[in-house]
Simulated assay, not measured.
Amino acid sequence: MDYRFKQGSIPLLVSMPHVGTDIPDDIAATLAPCGQVKADTDWHLEQLYGFLDEMGASTLAARWSRYVIDLNRPPENTNLYPGQDTTGLCPVDTFGREQLYQPGRAPGDAEVRRRLAAYWRPYHDRLRGELDRLLALHGRVVLWEAHSIASVVPRFFEGKLPDLNFGTADGASCDAGLTERITELARADGKFTVAVNGRFKGGHITRHYGQPGRGVHAVQLEMCQSTYMDETFPFDYRPDLALLVQPVLRRMLQAAADWARP
């Protein structure tokens, strides 16, 4: 299976497109050593969001590493942040600008098309199908895009990121009232710094599927990995840190589900 999927009962779908760590053997054979480290993975999010089953939320998590293909990029490989540096649909370098492939072995156009069909499309077909099912049941649904990133990545931004970075495509993917409610909860206990539509405004999934007029309200949360794990190899999960942020996550997701209910 190309993903891990659990069907829930409430109007909430949590998508985790960058948690995958598997790399098919034929692709792994073309990678440089840094590709095997998989440093740019959104590590441990399924564990961090482990309360979702109890809530009754639907969850969709990638199996394949973003080094195989990035599920949160448009199939045309257009830049979501024009004028800014970013990695592409089939990344050829890491966030630290290390070359992912052995010399002469980066994927060409035909290989990118093959990966789109084999690895990108199944995830998006499941995502679309589950959103449609939840819409039919509830009339309104929240799509929560769960991501994480190292708190300092000079390639993409200066200094340290805020702890919790919300993106709603500058308000186009989500009702303003929902955004206000969840960010209010994020700031409530004062433990975490918060940004809305700052460096991260939402990737392809948030922008493409978030259609408030059709009843789908999409929010991306890009968390600093320093809030719940060690940011250096071997990227260990930190239960002591996670216990501080998990209650905030749960309150926000519960509020989102409650907001979506008729």
Results as ranks from 00 to 15, higher is better:
Thr183Val: 14
Gln225Glu: 06
Val194Thr: 05
Pro212Lys: 11
Asn72Gly: 12
Ala29Lys: 03
Thr30Tyr: 04
Arg4Lys: 10
Leu241Ala: 06
Ile23Arg: 04
Asn165Thr: 10
Thr232Phe: 03
Trp43Tyr: 14
Trp43Asn: 00
Gln7Tyr: 05
Pro82Asn: 09
Val196Pro: 02
Pro239Thr: 04
His138Pro: 12
Ile27His: 00
Ser15Ala: 15
Thr21Glu: 04
Ala257Pro: 11
Ile23His: 06
Ile10Lys: 08
Ile205Phe: 01
Trp120Asn: 08
Leu60Phe: 10
Ala176Glu: 14
Gly215Phe: 10
Ala242Asn: 06
Leu135Ala: 07
Ala118Met: 12
Gly210Gln: 10
Asp132Arg: 11
Asp109Val: 05
Trp144Arg: 04
Val19Asp: 05
Arg251Gly: 01
Phe51Ala: 01
Ala146Arg: 07
Arg251His: 05
Gln47Lys: 09
Arg155Ile: 00
Tyr3Cys: 11
Thr87Glu: 03
Met229Ser: 06
Leu185Ala: 03
Leu164Gln: 12
Leu89Trp: 10
Val194Asn: 03
Gly177Glu: 10
Met55Ile: 06
Pro33Ile: 04
Gly198Ser: 10
Asp230Cys: 11
Arg105Gly: 01
Arg251Asp: 13
Trp144Thr: 05
Met223Asn: 04
His18Met: 09
Ile205Glu: 03
Tyr3Gln: 15
Asp93Arg: 12
Ile27Cys: 06
His138Asn: 04
Thr86Cys: 11
Thr30Ile: 00
Asp40Met: 02
Phe156Leu: 15
Gly88Leu: 06
Asp189Ser: 10
Arg199Ser: 11
Asp109Tyr: 01
Asn79Phe: 02
Thr86Ser: 14
Ala32Gln: 00
Leu253Met: 13
Val248Glu: 00
Phe51Thr: 05
His217Gln: 01
Arg105Asn: 05
Gln225His: 13
Gly108Ile: 08
Lys191Tyr: 00
Asp2Leu: 11
Val196His: 07
Phe200Met: 08
Phe192Lys: 01
Ser148Trp: 03
Phe233Trp: 13
Pro262Asn: 13
Arg128Tyr: 01
Glu130His: 02
Ala186Asn: 09
Arg4Cys: 01
Pro239Ile: 03
Ala255Ser: 15
Ala172Pro: 03
Pro154Asp: 14
Glu46Trp: 01
Val112Gly: 07
Arg155Gln: 11
Gln246Phe: 00
Glu222Pro: 08
Leu100Ala: 02
Gly108Asp: 15
